[in-house]
Amino acid sequence: MESVVIVLIIVVLAMMRYAQHIKHGYQYVDRQAAPVKAKVLPVPQAYRDILQKYFKYYQALSPSAKLTFERKVTLFVYSKQFIPRMIDSITLEAKVLIAASAVQLTFGLPDHPLQHFNKILVYPNDYYSGITKRYHKGEVNPRFGIIVLSWQSFIDGYINPNDAFNVGLHEMAHALRLESMMREESQVFDENLFDTFDDYADHICLQMEIIPNKIIRPYACTNRHEFFSVAVENFFERPAQFKAELPEVYGILGKLLRQDPLNLK
């Protein structure tokens, strides 16, 4: 009798595992079809409502640019696997706003950037890393194609739109720079232009050892990757001040991202 029960348990577990594989298979195929779905299917009205209610960057766009933004957000949502951590599920609002932060950064670039990063992990609050032994608001793992975000810190970044602290933009900038470095066939950015940007970063950080910078916070000088992400935060949240204080850096960043936050329309 016991042997029969054991066999039944093994069969049930095998069936559950098979069903899980089938489910993941369908989800993978669905994500692969995202570019077609985003072009053919209408943008869900719920996406527009969320963007219009909460996303300032979207609100400032012209009607035609809004349509493009909506399509890019839809593509991002359809093509990424959103994975909850320490929460039961990720709301549609969270998915749309996280996608919007990525589209805000890449709006001037060709369609479907950040292809390498296909998993978005979302924690409810800042989370503890067993590797670094400290709490994080977000991080990027290029080896596994993962972007990790604290939802509370993400929201705080957009609630305070002028302090140049924005976890969403910061982590998306990390992902974008890393993806550009990993692509062999086509670069996201002009390599020479990025070299010039890095030269300015090095020069500014040397100056900051003597005189603090009014725009760039000291953390930016941890390395060139952090400088780029901090610069992106300032580019979108304090563009007028950034342009006035560091016009050359602002101009190069505008060319890299192919947009100007001071002239969205």
Rank of each mutant, 00 (worst) to 15 (best):
L105F: 05
H174C: 08
V77N: 02
L169Y: 02
F117A: 11
R134L: 11
N162W: 10
Y54I: 07
L121E: 09
R85I: 12
I147T: 12
D88E: 14
A173P: 00
E139H: 06
Q104F: 07
S62K: 12
R143H: 06
Y135G: 06
R85M: 13
P63G: 10
N118D: 15
A102I: 01
D126N: 14
R85D: 05
S79Y: 04
G145N: 05
R177T: 09
A173R: 03
A164Y: 00
A175H: 06
H174Y: 07
I90Y: 02
T132G: 02
V77W: 00
A94D: 04
T74W: 10
R85W: 06
D163W: 06
L105E: 00
F117H: 01
I90V: 10
K119H: 04
Y47V: 15
Y78F: 14
W151F: 09
P113L: 08
F154E: 03
L61I: 08
K119P: 04
M86L: 13
N166R: 00
Y57W: 08
D163K: 05
F82P: 01
L178W: 15
A102L: 03
L121W: 07
L92R: 01
W151R: 00
A100Y: 00
Q59V: 05
R183M: 09
E184L: 05
G108D: 03
K53S: 09
T132Q: 05
Y47M: 15
M182W: 10
I155Y: 03
E184D: 04
F82W: 08
L169S: 02
I131N: 01
E179C: 07
Q115L: 15
E171Y: 01
S89H: 07
I87D: 01
D163N: 09
I83A: 05
V122R: 00
T74P: 02
I131L: 08
L178F: 15
L178K: 15
L97S: 12
Y123N: 07
V122Y: 03
Y54A: 09
P161I: 11
P84M: 05
K72C: 13
Y158A: 08
P142N: 05
F76L: 05
I120Y: 00
L51F: 09
I159T: 11
R71K: 14
G138K: 00
S62D: 14
R134C: 10
F144C: 07
L178I: 15
S150P: 06
T132K: 04
S150L: 04
Y54F: 09
W151G: 02
F69V: 12
A99I: 02
E70M: 11
E93A: 14
Q45K: 07
